[in-house]
Computed example of a mutant assay.
Amino acid sequence: MKKFLGYFLTPVATGVFLLILVIFQPIQWVCFRFFGYSAHKKSVDILNLFLLRSVYLLGNTVTFINNQNLPVGRPIIFLANHQGLLDIPPMIWYLRKYHAKFISKIELTKNIPSISYNLRHGGGANIDRKDQRQSITEIMKLGVRMKENKWSAVIFPEGTRSTDGTIKTFQVGGIATILKKCPEALLVPVAIKDSWKMIRYGQYPLNTFTPMKWEVLTPIEPAGRPIEEVVLEAENQIRTALAS
């Protein structure tokens, strides 16, 4: 039944999603061009609030739990499992006070309303996966910006999204690179549960009436510990949270 309803509700939700992107393209441009970083960031925050709310048109729900007393004004690396494109808007909106930036494929910086503009001007790292040197350089620049501005970053250490919710082994490369330039960063795992179910049938139909959950887990101090050890600890925290 949920899949059947998706045939009727998907065009509505997708249409609203795309309309939001188109509307916020000029809003972002004005904010960035005339009012600078702070105004642009607020416009991006609100954009992502609208994007995450658009999934409610499918009867889906988003629950974001953050019971951690995370420091404001200290760089944070949020490590999350990756299940789909919907993973991102709740992270941007609910973690907005931490100025979380993303590491994205450079292909996404073109031809996508609002999203491409933000990737080019929002302060994240846009990497070419075919060019290892360029990727490392961009991530190092992100680490420097995090240190200088007390920003945070969101990393999906699996490297690619899971199509069935199964977690892949976390990779340490990007995290280690950021820590070289921003060693004071705190590592914070985030468990994303069941967002993959919304796209279990692909982009059409989208699944309906699916509860999805994001949960911020116990922070990890990386100082003085092997990077492999702290990343494994984060991975295990997420695995445990998803199994409960």
Rank of each mutant, 00 (worst) to 15 (best):
T218V: 14
K141W: 09
V230N: 09
A176F: 00
S116W: 08
L79N: 06
S114Q: 06
R225W: 00
F64I: 03
V72F: 14
G124Q: 07
K150T: 08
S114D: 04
K2E: 11
G122Q: 01
T109A: 10
F64P: 10
R96I: 14
M91Q: 14
F170R: 05
I220M: 09
R161I: 09
V190Y: 00
E228Q: 14
A185M: 00
V144W: 13
E233D: 07
D131M: 05
I127C: 01
M146C: 09
K213W: 13
I115S: 07
N69M: 05
P157S: 06
K130E: 15
K197D: 13
V62Y: 12
E158H: 06
L52A: 08
R96M: 11
S162F: 14
F24R: 00
A191S: 04
T109I: 04
V190R: 05
R200D: 12
Y204M: 05
W93E: 06
L18G: 08
V144G: 09
F209I: 03
K2G: 00
Q171F: 10
I227C: 02
G202V: 03
L85P: 04
S54A: 13
N236W: 06
I77K: 02
Y117P: 11
G202L: 11
N126S: 12
L119A: 09
Q68V: 04
Y204I: 13
F78D: 08
T240F: 03
I155W: 01
T163S: 07
L85R: 00
V55M: 15
T109M: 11
N126D: 15
L70M: 09
I220N: 01
K2C: 00
E229V: 11
L57F: 01
R129F: 08
L86W: 06
T210N: 13
F156W: 10
C31I: 06
F170E: 08
Q132F: 08
A39G: 09
K193I: 14
E221Q: 02
I23F: 02
A234Y: 01
L19N: 03
E233Y: 12
Y117F: 15
R74I: 08
L206F: 07
P71Q: 09
E158K: 01
F209R: 02
S116R: 13
K197N: 14
T210I: 09
N236S: 13
A176S: 07
T160P: 12
I27T: 04
L18D: 02
A191T: 05
L232N: 13
M140Q: 15
K150Q: 15
C31S: 13
K180F: 01
M140H: 15
Q171D: 12
K3A: 01
G174A: 04
I136R: 07
T218N: 13
S244I: 12
R161E: 02
N149Q: 03
Y37A: 08
L108R: 04
S116D: 05
F4P: 00
N111V: 07
G173Q: 05
F209S: 04
V216S: 12
Q68F: 07
F78L: 10
N118T: 10
P157V: 11
F50E: 00
T160M: 03
V154P: 09
I175N: 03
Q28E: 14
S38E: 15
W196E: 12
E148A: 05
R145A: 10
I103Q: 11
